[in-house]
Design a binder for these strands. Structure first.
Lengths: 165, 165
DNA sequence: TTTGGATATCTTGATGTCGAGATACTTGCG
DNA sequence: CGCAAGTATCTCGACATCAAGATATCCAAA
């Protein structure tokens, strides 16, 4: 089946036949798919009363394992946002009673953000909901194709994740 | 090479061994890669004095071919933003002299947004720059792998692009 | 011809994000 | 020890986005 990117690439070939627009076949699809996924995630989380950004923070803490705490700095690297954004997120999650701030006993500049019981429950529920939705989207692909796709994407992401940038 | 998603998946398998988190192998990579790409694009466009959102609008018009004009509604579907956002974007691009608004001769509710000569030049320059950057990122993959990746991504994006949603 | 629903765009107010700078504390070098 | 550079977090102002609603126009059926 054809998609928007097929149309986009065809248009460039018509308008700029001098250019090689092959890279768009991959990267424009990544960007557009991510945008669609964001919207779908927003809908999925709404069923659990969470915003996507709340999910990102809560699940990062949940994944850390008991006692479910990380520093704001660790949260930054996992969620790819700036420090000002993270401060704001922690403030709002604290207001909702989903996390709380504790002083870091080893570094008085630092803070530890810890999941509350309520926060942990919400994270677990939302994760289950998200996985159900994502499984539907991926039903287009065989299990083997999913593996291929994951492996190819890993090759592209790894440089960003390993070389500081 | 390992990436952040490998670590993320491993953490979930440790914390929630009851869940099948396989979907994250694909979709979390898509989201994270898109986020990295956004940052890289921002840097690439800065060399040409453009923001990513400006590039998106200008190139949509450029691709339309002479006389380089589209309605705001057509721009919406190509850029995946809301109508309020597009109005705002057109306002600002008009202020910079890169596009101008014309009344639609066939529909008095409507408007046509047309690229100026300056806007067209900027779009062409920025596109060349973007393709150069993207080619570097894709150097991780053989030409055959790029084709596979594009085909698999198309399977996932097509439902969004073809069924209205 | 009239009327009601659909369509195209714009307006408005709230919100989340970013970037730059401020503050407080830590670390390592001399 | 004392100081400079580095680090962790927070503050603040600007800005882009969104959702919902307002306005103007089109179109088709009665």
């Amino acid at each position: 089946m054809e998609d928007e990117v097929d149309r986009l690439v065809a248009a460039w070939r018509r308008e700029r036949p001098d250019l090689d627009v092959e890279p768009l076949e991959v990267l424009s699809r990544v960007s557009r798919l991510a945008r669609h996924l964001d919207r779908a995630r927003r809908t999925a989380f709404a069923e659990h009363g969470l915003e996507p950004w709340e999910f990102d923070v809560l699940t990062a803490l949940r994944r850390a394992g008991s006692p479910y705490q990380l520093s704001p700095g660790q949260l930054l690297t996992q969620t790819l946002v700036t420090s000002g954004t993270m401060t704001n997120r922690i403030d709002r999650l604290t207001g909702k009673g989903l996390v709380k701030r504790l002083p870091d006993p080893d570094d008085r500049r630092g803070v530890l953000v810890r999941l509350t019981g309520d926060g942990r429950d919400r994270a677990d529920q939302a994760l289950a909901g998200l996985l159900a939705h994502e499984r539907e989207l991926l039903a287009q692909l065989t299990s083997g194709q999913q593996g291929e796709l994951a492996a190819l994407l890993r090759l592209l992401v790894a440089p960003f994740d390993n070389i500081p940038g």
